[in-house]
Design a protein around this nucleic acid. Sequence first.
DNA 1: TATATAGTTTATAATAATTCTAAACTAGAA
DNA 2: TTCTAGTTTAGAATTATTATAAACTATATA
Lengths: 139, 139
Amino acid sequence: MIISDNLKMYVQKLRSSNLRPTKQRLNICQFLFDRKKTFHFTVETLNKKINKNGATKISLATIYNTVEAFTSAGYLKEILTSKNKSYYDTNIKSHHHFYDEGSKELTDIHYSQIKLSKVPVPPKGKKIKNLEVVIRIQK
Amino acid sequence: MIISDNLKMYVQKLRSSNLRPTKQRLNICQFLFDRKKTFHFTVETLNKKINKNGATKISLATIYNTVEAFTSAGYLKEILTSKNKSYYDTNIKSHHHFYDEGSKELTDIHYSQIKLSKVPVPPKGKKIKNLEVVIRIQK
DNA sequence: TATATAGTTTATAATAATTCTAAACTAGAA
DNA sequence: TTCTAGTTTAGAATTATTATAAACTATATA
């Protein structure tokens, strides 16, 4: 797949979510999704990496806005593992995580690697929105 | 069980964890553990409830210190469900949680209500510290 | 029992992540 | 081309938490 083609794809994708394909959003799309492996990040790390090569500066507020917009549009998955900081994952398929307490890094666990043979019924009037397994690991 | 007896018990408990049984810690013990049902709280709510009846004031810093000390002593379990805020649970037995996105409330799921028939092997050199299932629910 | 000391509490300041604000900018409809 | 609603931005505000340093206290031991 040729990378220049992806731009058009991202424009489509954004439009389909009622998000205007702005320069900043497209840059962030390319940064996040033009890669083969899934990418785990915090807003802090994304901001640093995006703004490293002084070429285009995207403000921190926009990084926050965009990550929030992409998450509610379903392009990103938010994972809570650590006090005071949210992690995001470009892998939005149903899957779970290892969280390394030492390095503070997330690793995907493929959904087939965890099998739940029993899941509780939600309280009356409530529906299950999602089910997340986090396995904390350490040395 | 007579409540006045619990004080002695808490003194023992604290001593066994190398925590001096101070007035504040004993107050917090009584507030947290002199109850039949498990209790879920944030530092904010604990602080409000503890300091409601103007009798004894415990500073916010002490609430933070104590919750931290009780968590590392294993009297409390920390549950991460929400950006920017930690939840704690007086139920330290292995169990899981419903997190209601609307009311932002936690409910215990008894460990027998969830069965994992397959769990991944941790990466080389790492050990599993704990495994937590959070089921997000909504209307 | 008195006292020295290490642990604890406290008010307050500092920090860190995130959200808010309001003015300037821009995509895209008309 | 022009208008407007959506977007970006710098910076201020907010919120949860942690750090600081002085006052206090539990408790070991003289």
